[in-house]
Amino acid sequence: MRIERDIIYIILGFIVLMVVVPWTAGQLSDQVFFNWPFFFEVAIGGLLSGVMYSLIALGFVLIFKASGVFNFSQGAIVLFAALTLVGLHGLGLPMWLAIVATMGVMFLLAVAIERLVLSKLVNQEPIILFMATIGIAYFLDGFGQTLWGSEVKVLNLGISEAPGFYFDGQILINDFDLFAAGIAAVMVVVLGIFFQYTRIGRALRAVADDHQAALSVGIPLKHIWIIVWTVAGLVGLVAGIMWGSKMGVQFALSLIALKALPVLILGGFTSVPGAIIGGLIIGAGEKLAEVFLAPMIGGGIEEWFAYMLALAFLAFRPQGLFGEKIIERV
């Protein structure tokens, strides 16, 4: 993939802003504490939580790339996968078996969604499909909790939650977050290879470009959709495991998806690297803003900061960082 020079400039711009703004805030306001080790600690913490956002955004990108559907139910899929995993484990299955079984469930879910929803909405406008996925999201949220209950459940992977100290003990980083970042990196590489170099991956990209054209050259749409929703389900499962062990398996997991949306518009709906870099920018920007800006303008700006950042960015580049430029024709 060729990276435009613009993109590099934009990313560098973000990095400069992320350093300059907190530093300036530290100089200007008494309420803001600033020193370099603290800054790096916040920034690294932010980048690592950004990786977690990327993990969710990846699920969106996969489905959008391969079927042109903006899948609002990705958050619900994350919740459903985590609930199923914990539920099956609770029934006495060992963890590895529960994970395998949940993967099976995700496949069945993909089949059900294809049979019951997508196949009936072929050639409908994208907005109709988008709304259908909102319906799927609501259904899954209710279904998962009806099945497994709505109390907060603990998911323990046996990774220490204890903070580790790095760089002469000056900077504090969660080992768990590092682990999650490693997992996410592996996922990205695997997915990248899958899309770029496998036959199925190429078929997926063909379908994304034009449903009917793909059908006419003999790519079975049905199978493609099942595959891509299964893969998105598996990505959702990984995200569910990581997020679930961090904050407990509960309904709030479904809302995490809302956090991933700004990542998507920043990175572009169709780009796997976009999801990663978008996640890093959003994660770091959000944490830095919360620590270095919020004391001046009021707490809780994490609620909307990511959205405003993405919105401001879109004003300059409506297709997102890595999205394809839209040439309008008549």
């Binding site: 019951l116 259908a132 319906g135 799927i136 999201a137 899954l140 209710g142 279904f143 009806t146």
Partner: peptide
């Protein structure tokens, strides 16, 4: 209620 809502949305769209 969530389930029925979700199912109805999909049903209506189809």
């Amino acid at each position: 209620e969530y389930m029925i809502f979700g199912a109805l949305i999909v049903f209506f769209l189809i």
